[in-house]
Design a protein around this nucleic acid. Structure first.
Lengths: 203, 203
DNA sequence: CGCTTTATTGGGCTGAGTCTATTTAAAACG
DNA sequence: CGTTTTAAATAGACTCAGCCCAATAAAGCG
């Protein structure tokens, strides 16, 4: 995960999300999540505590650097796709959605599994971690629901987007559990997503 | 929501979940969620701050007194149903699941909507609230997955249970939004759940 | 060299959540 | 009726995430 290009003006950055991420994961391995303070993370990364909060709104946000980028990509892909289909061709919104999800998932290889999923026993179900996780789920859901637009009643769009998010979570879970030769996320997602989309296509 | 019977031995309880719940909701209406401290809630309820934490593990748990009871009931219904079908009759696990969910949902009338859902703008997406919400979702998911047992591969069971939870959330959301004549949760849940179960039944 | 921009930093503050120890109110017992 | 047991309430202190604000450092620009 390469960091975004820095501004050419003003004081140069000394920290970065990935720098803090690495420091954090080291310490989590040593002392666990709850046993590690933001102070310690910042110190190991060579910055001050406040600088940590310049890069992350919360301690638990260090877990989702990669996933946030994927959700960004998902939004971009959906925007591009819906722009393409202004001229109404025969592709359904659900097919569009499926393609976008699998497109993003296909780019995620075995080493892209969120660290928190492969070290869950070490981290545990802290309130903060749960909150940060549902924050991502909500954002993905909003991205999907926006892309669906008014192609269906609002209640249906919401059910569908929630169900898609649920499929993504289920897929990521089994992907993470599958071990080093887990392949890309796409195959797992396909399995979790198919029945859901099949059910909604019938509507 | 009547409280559980107290022990007959020892110092009698002066507080109760519902007592604290009422005090909390009053204060949330006056000052918002973030603007209300646990200290204030306890004081209004006539107990000490520590007593609050005897009844709730976290401030945000006051939102889910009713829902927790429903999840308990859900677990009980599923247990009973799976005990009944030891003698293998023709009812599929998915039908069992559907019946249990609708049975519990049917008991929830218009006034049983979680307060937090009808006052969401006032509460906002605090980290704590999100964490408490996903905690409930996780518990419900575990209850469902356990009931499914080994009737399907683990990955499928997980996808299905996640999808069911997603349907429950979507249903509760539109239920809450539907206004005072929203009826019971069951009708909303039926709509959200049908496509999901249809898709998985095909497997 | 000022000026502007951007980032880091220091210090202080609130409040959730935890822990340990103590006290209180009732029931049960002899 | 005093004593013991038990469960609950309480007191007090502590850690740390998250927030805010003001100060400072490092770069480019005129």
């Amino acid at each position: 995960m390469t960091d975004a290009p820095r501004a050419m003006r003003g004081r140069p950055r000394v920290g970065s999300p990935s720098l803090l991420e690495e420091a954090a994961f080291e310490l989590f391995l040593e002392n666990g999540y709850a046993g590690t303070t933001v102070e310690q993370i910042s110190t190991r990364a060579g910055v001050s505590r406040n600088t940590f909060f310049n890069y992350f709104a919360a301690k638990s946000d260090v877990f989702w650097v990669g996933l946030d980028a994927s959700i960004d990509r998902m939004a971009a892909v959906l925007d591009a796709a819906s722009a393409d289909t202004d001229t109404d061709d025969g592709v359904t919104p659900i097919e569009l959605l499926r393609d976008a999800l699998l497109d993003v998932a296909d780019r995620l290889g075995p080493s892209d599994v969120p660290w928190v999923l492969t070290h869950f026993e070490l981290i545990g179900s802290t309130h903060e971690v749960m909150a940060s996780a549902i924050g991502r789920a909500t954002r993905l859901s909003n991205v999907i629901e926006r892309a669906l637009g008014d192609s269906a009643p609002a209640a249906v769009s919401r059910s569908l987007s929630f169900a898609c998010v649920a499929a993504v979570i289920a897929a990521m879970t089994s992907w993470a559990e599958a071990g080093p030769d887990r392949g890309s996320l796409a195959a797992h997602l396909e399995r979790a997503l198919s029945p859901v989309l099949a059910g909604f296509t019938a509507l």
